[in-house]
Design a protein around this nucleic acid. Sequence first.
DNA 1: TCATCTTTGCAACATCATTGCATCATCCAA
DNA 2: TTGGATGATGCAATGATGTTGCAAAGATGA
Lengths: 138, 138
Amino acid sequence: MARYGDIKKILKAHNMRITDGRVDILSFFVSQDRALTLRDIQKEFKNADRVTLYRTLGAFEKNGILHSIPLDGTQMAYGLNDNSHGQANHNCDHIHFKCDECGIVQCLDQPIPKVTLPGYQIKQVNLVMSGVCNSCIA
Amino acid sequence: MARYGDIKKILKAHNMRITDGRVDILSFFVSQDRALTLRDIQKEFKNADRVTLYRTLGAFEKNGILHSIPLDGTQMAYGLNDNSHGQANHNCDHIHFKCDECGIVQCLDQPIPKVTLPGYQIKQVNLVMSGVCNSCIA
DNA sequence: TCATCTTTGCAACATCATTGCATCATCCAA
DNA sequence: TTGGATGATGCAATGATGTTGCAAAGATGA
């Protein structure tokens, strides 16, 4: 479990005010080694206000703590940025894997292969794989 | 514009009944050289029932005529399968590009680079890039 | 401690997606 | 060509999902 002081440092480093809700949610992200959907967070914090969650996640993303991962058109997952301990940096060029069995979304270490598209200007790349994860196979 | 007979052939080849609504929607997909969202289709067929659209798109996907493309967590696009004229075959291993300017989603000819994940069983791969498309740059 | 600006929580609203069911259309077989 | 079995459609109702405005509470720096 991450310490309270560490969580505060992350928020401060991204120029965000320290509030109880933000500390709780960010701690949850740090404690779970995976990407979380709004549903996951709602399940963990049952009496949290939905609006506040949306705004908190939005603020985390805007300030470079989280990156968003479009899953299946009705679900958005959020993962900690690799460099969330440092300055804001929105790049997130790793592969995501969603397990059909356990539903968990993982941020993999593996980078997305470079692709060049002549005539196009590429700003974002998102690669999501799905199937059965290493834990569920084992 | 695709001929009525061709559209019927595609539906028949995928073991689907021929109905007016299905013919209209499939014709629309064939006429547009791009992936369509539910919103695009609703804009084209203003008095179509939403439920029927969901079910039609779901049936097209299940029978291998369309593949779905998760865009940004709140939008799902659908594209014609390359082989939609033949037998059902759900594979769709090309790159998708969503333009931030015009909003159009294209199915590119370029295949998704092969990635191996030891310990994982991969069933689906989805790669969406976004930025500015060739038409908007030109 | 105070003043200021941000964040939160509630209410209301708008949109999106799903389910059940009665009716209608399609298609195959007689 | 027609009748019946099966599948598709449209409507109503419900539930889930996001968004906005605003007043109250909290965080931060002076």
